[in-house]
C-alpha cells in the first residue's frame, strides 16, 4: 500500500470508490468474475443474493491464512495455560492436594486443553472479524438504490478505484464486454 492511490472524481466532485455493473443471472456473474480475475484485478468483489458455488475459484480467491494463525494462537494458549499451572502449583501457591506431588503434569492436562480451545475459539472468531474488516458500519455501495436489489434478484460486480489496474474507461469497457448492465460510478 506504499504506492499513492490515484484519485478519480465524478462530475459532482465526489471521490470515486469504484465502478459497479449489474448482471441478470448467476451464470453471467460467474463468467464475468472469471474474466475480471484473468484481467488481473485484485480489489473487487461480487455481490449475490445467495452463495454461488465455485465462485472463490472464479474470483481467484486464495485460501485464508486464518487457520494457521488460529493454530499458532491455540498452541500458544495451551502452552501459556500449562506454564501458568506449573507456576501456580510449584512456585506461586504450592498447596498439598490429596497428597499428590506438586510437580505432576496429569491434573494440568484438562485445563491446558481448555485454555487451548478457548484461545483457538477467540482467535478464530475475532480473526474472522478482522480479516473480513468487520464490523463495517457503512459501505459506499449502499448509497445506490439499484444495489439494494442485490439482496433479491440482481448480481453485481464492483471494481474499486483503489485497484492498481483501475482506469475509469477501461474498467468500464471490460465490464461492458462481459454483458454487464447499468454501469455506475460509486462515490465514497
Amino acid at each position: 500500500m506504499s504506492k499513492a492511490r490515484k484519485i478519480y472524481k465524478t462530475e459532482d466532485g465526489g471521490i470515486v470508490y469504484g465502478v459497479m455493473a449489474e448482471f441478470d443471472t448467476p451464470a453471467d456473474l460467474f463468467h464475468a468474475a472469471e474474466r475480471v480475475r484473468d484481467a488481473g484485478y485484485s480489489r473487487w468483489d461480487v455481490y449475490s443474493p445467495f452463495p454461488v458455488h465455485g465462485m472463490e475459484e472464479a474470483m481467484g480467491l486464495k485460501n485464508t491464512k486464518l487457520p494457521l494463525l488460529t493454530g499458532i494462537v491455540g498452541l500458544s494458549g495451551a502452552g501459556l495455560g500449562y506454564l501458568f499451572q506449573w507456576w501456580v502449583t510449584t512456585r506461586g501457591y504450592a498447596t498439598i492436594v490429596q497428597g499428590k506431588p506438586f510437580d505432576t503434569f496429569q491434573p494440568w492436562v484438562p485445563v491446558t486443553f481448555e485454555i487451548g480451545v478457548l484461545f483457538t475459539a477467540f482467535c478464530a472468531l475475532l480473526g474472522m472479524f478482522a480479516f473480513n474488516a468487520l464490523p463495517m458500519w457503512y459501505h459506499p455501495l449502499l448509497k445506490k438504490d439499484r444495489f439494494l436489489r442485490v439482496s433479491d434478484d440482481r448480481f453485481v460486480i464492483c471494481i474499486e478505484a483503489a485497484d492498481p489496474k483501475f482506469d475509469p474507461d477501461r474498467t468500464r469497457e471490460l465490464l461492458e464486454k462481459l454483458h454487464g448492465k447499468h454501469f455506475d460510478f460509486v462515490e465514497e
Partner: peptide
C-alpha cells in the same frame, strides 16, 4: 449450480 459451471471454460472437472 452445475449448469452454470458446465459452461465455464476454466471449470474444474468436478463442476461438470
Amino acid at each position: 449450480m452445475s449448469q452454470i459451471a458446465s459452461r465455464s471454460s476454466h471449470g474444474h472437472e468436478d463442476h461438470a
